[in-house]
Simulated assay, not measured.
Amino acid sequence: MRKAASNEDSGAGEEKAKVQGSQTLLRGLDMLDHVIDGPIKLAELSGRMGLTRSTAHRLANALIDRGFLTFLPREGYQLGPKLLHLGFLAQSQADVVQIARPHIDELAQRSEDTVHLGRLDNELALYLDKIPGRRRVDISSRVGDRQPLTSTGLGKALLIDGTESAWRRLFDADQASGAPKADYAVWLARMQDYAAEGRAYDLEENQDQIRCVAAPIRDASGRIVAAISVSSAAQYMDDARMETLGEDVRGTAERISSDLGWSPRTKPPRR
């Protein structure tokens, strides 16, 4: 009987240790979240987390030992070099096509229209993936196609963070190389609106009777690394639907960006 009781006590002790270990891990992850915005002092950190100063100090020291945090005298705790290393590894392993596929599949099902995924390639928009829509609409694009940046919705989404001087240079280059003719003043006014709204349109500029809505995809640094678009016949894409669809396309792009490590708090890099 004593042996059985001892086994029961041992099992209960192991289970309690597992629970405590899980709680410590979650607290450590929570602490990293609280340090994201920059150096934070122990008193504020413990207050935000609802921990005693001694518990917060002990947990922070454990994270410092592992390289997940560093301590700056008179400033407080901030993210450590281990996270930079892990971030670079995660980014190098991220395949935007694979990560985006379930999201754009869902977008295609909701919209019933053709969805594209693409990225910048030598000042052209390179199509990386395409999901055909359910409507009988012929979208003349293939994976591997390269299209002008300034006349496609996907291309404009890739340019949203650019400067006006860069926009002008690319616009002039596309016009010189045979892109559909356009008025720069009109195009610029639209691009300024797209940059403010975080999404872009193609208003039958690249293919007659075809409209599309696009939005950029960002990586952990906030840099635009790809874009998605929804394309359909103009009869299915009146102004009201494009505005509504813009919210869905932008939301989908943000979810893909989040899977790549982006956060809404991340500011785009300056150009």
Rank of each mutant, 00 (worst) to 15 (best):
K3F: 10
K3T: 06
A5K: 05
S10G: 06
G11R: 13
G11C: 07
G13E: 14
E14I: 12
E14D: 13
E14R: 11
E15F: 08
E15L: 15
G21T: 13
S22G: 12
D30Y: 11
D30R: 15
M31A: 03
L42K: 05
L42S: 07
S46L: 05
G47L: 09
G50D: 11
L59M: 11
A62C: 01
L63A: 08
I64E: 14
R66S: 15
T70I: 12
L72G: 11
P73Q: 11
R74T: 12
Y77G: 00
Y77C: 04
Q78R: 14
P81E: 11
P81V: 05
L84A: 08
F88Q: 11
L89N: 03
Q93H: 14
Q93E: 13
D95S: 12
Q98R: 11
Q98P: 04
I99M: 05
A100Q: 04
P102E: 12
H103Y: 09
A108H: 02
Q109N: 11
S111T: 15
D113M: 14
L117I: 08
G118P: 01
N122G: 06
E123G: 01
Y127P: 00
D129I: 04
I131V: 15
R134A: 15
R134D: 15
R134P: 05
R136I: 15
V137C: 15
S140R: 14
S141R: 00
R142V: 08
V143M: 08
D145Q: 07
Q147L: 14
P148G: 12
T150A: 06
G155H: 02
L158E: 01
L158V: 04
T163W: 01
E164R: 06
W167I: 04
W167Q: 01
W167S: 00
W167P: 01
W167L: 10
R169F: 10
R169E: 15
D174C: 08
S177T: 13
A179I: 09
P180K: 02
A189R: 14
R190Q: 14
Q192N: 08
D193A: 10
D193C: 07
Y194D: 01
G198C: 08
A200Y: 10
Y201M: 11
D202T: 10
E204W: 02
E204A: 15
E204P: 04
E205T: 13
I210M: 09
R211L: 04
R211D: 04
C212D: 03
A215Y: 02
D219I: 09
S221C: 09
S221M: 12
G222R: 02
R223D: 03
A226Q: 03
I228E: 03
V230R: 00
S231E: 08
S231R: 02
Y236N: 14
M237G: 03
M237P: 02
D239C: 04
A240E: 15
E243H: 09
T244S: 13
G246W: 00
R255E: 10
I256P: 00
S258L: 07
S258P: 00
S258H: 06
G261A: 06
W262M: 04
S263P: 01
S263G: 04
S263C: 03
R265K: 11
K267R: 13
